[in-house]
Design a protein around this nucleic acid. Structure first.
Lengths: 205, 205
DNA sequence: TAGATTGTTAATCGATTAACAATC
DNA sequence: TAGATTGTTAATCGATTAACAATC
């Protein structure tokens, strides 16, 4: 296993893992994985070969072995702790999503600014005031902060999280965040996704 | 303006548009756009040059002109109609998100299978039974279907939508969909995003 | 003219994939 | 041995970006 995987490879490993976890055979071929996760079989083999020689020629890959390997490479050996900031529709949906635990994550806290919301419960979590975020991050050992605030607030929340030591952010606000080196930001913008689809509809051949 | 933009360029245009819509100056440089959307300035110029000569050397780009251009290229001149299938936490959040209209989209209907939910209201929409999906798509002229069902149901919903003539799908279920050529699928998998972040935390240098 | 910034080239870099020897 | 499938090479393809002439 090596230190730095190509970014494109990292992006595909979760897809492979997802497929493997639903696979019913004890052995899978690169063709199987490819079909199940929508990529080229050569791609699959190349991606997996970065992680060492894990297959058997003529046979394929041991499903369970590969699952364990991918979980380990992705850092999912223990549950990752996530805090959610913003408890609007989307934030509440995240907090209430029960599927995360199976995929390696645990939502440990939810935050909001609005006085009216503090103390209310979403997804089994009591909403906490945002000024607790920094101290909570340190005390609870939060690994990832999901930012689900309005656009105006997102940079400020990112700054707070980074100040408290968080090194991974998932930003749902439609703003590009500026963070110091060593902090990874992933951006999910639903309107952007729709706009890309719109482009393809408008420019169909 | 040309027929086929590189996919990577298409993915960035919405970011540029988003930035421009919040920009306060009547003129912006490629450096401004780059800073505001987190990409390289040469990249911005190259992307925009695919759309024709829209800048003025020594000056920059006219903000409003560029906004109109990008909207047109992205097919956002008229509101795109979206139907949502699945009214769990995430589906309800989508239905209730008011920010879509400003970005070119209108949620026109929401669907579910569960008898108990039919007729209830989310985000101002009455939840309709899934067996109405195909006829509704045709009658209402739905452009895009967002699939927010459990994994097991997503392929079936995709098939229904495609059968009814939809050519663009946004899939939130953690399954790779198989669709006929000419249909564009975008996949948003939140657990995947968290897993990519997890990788970076685990393999930090 | 001097300063600024585009549009475009060309070099570089990285990602994809067909093909096949290795090997079970 | 025959069939299957990996691991890896090498070719191809596409994306990024520094650099700079063109031009406002």
């Amino acid at each position: 296993m090596q230190q730095t995987l190509p970014p494109a490879t990292v992006g595909r490993l979760p897809r492979y893992l997802r497929f493997l976890e639903t696979a019913e055979c004890s052995t899978v071929s690169s063709e199987d994985i490819a079909a199940g996760s929508g990529v080229n079989a050569a791609q699959v083999r190349k991606d997996l070969s970065y992680l060492g020689n894990n297959g058997t020629r003529g046979v394929g890959y041991q499903t369970q072995t590969l699952i364990r390997l991918l979980r380990r490479v992705l850092g999912l050996s223990s549950l990752m702790k996530i805090a959610i900031v913003g408890t609007g529709n989307l934030g509440s949906a995240l907090a209430g999503y029960s599927g995360f635990v199976n995929r390696g994550f645990q939502i440990v806290a939810a935050y909001d600014v609005s006085g009216g919301k503090i103390g209310r419960s979403i997804g089994g979590l009591e909403i906490r005031p945002i000024d607790r975020l920094e101290s909570d991050i340190k005390e609870m050992g939060v690994d990832i902060v999901a930012i689900v605030t309005p656009a105006e607030a997102s940079q400020e929340v990112a700054d707070m999280a980074v100040r408290a030591g968080v090194r991974a952010l998932l930003n749902f606000a439609p703003v590009s965040l500026h963070v110091e080196k060593g902090v990874t930001v992933r951006q999910v913008d639903l309107a952007t996704e729709f706009q890309i689809l719109s482009y393809h509809l408008a420019n169909r051949i």
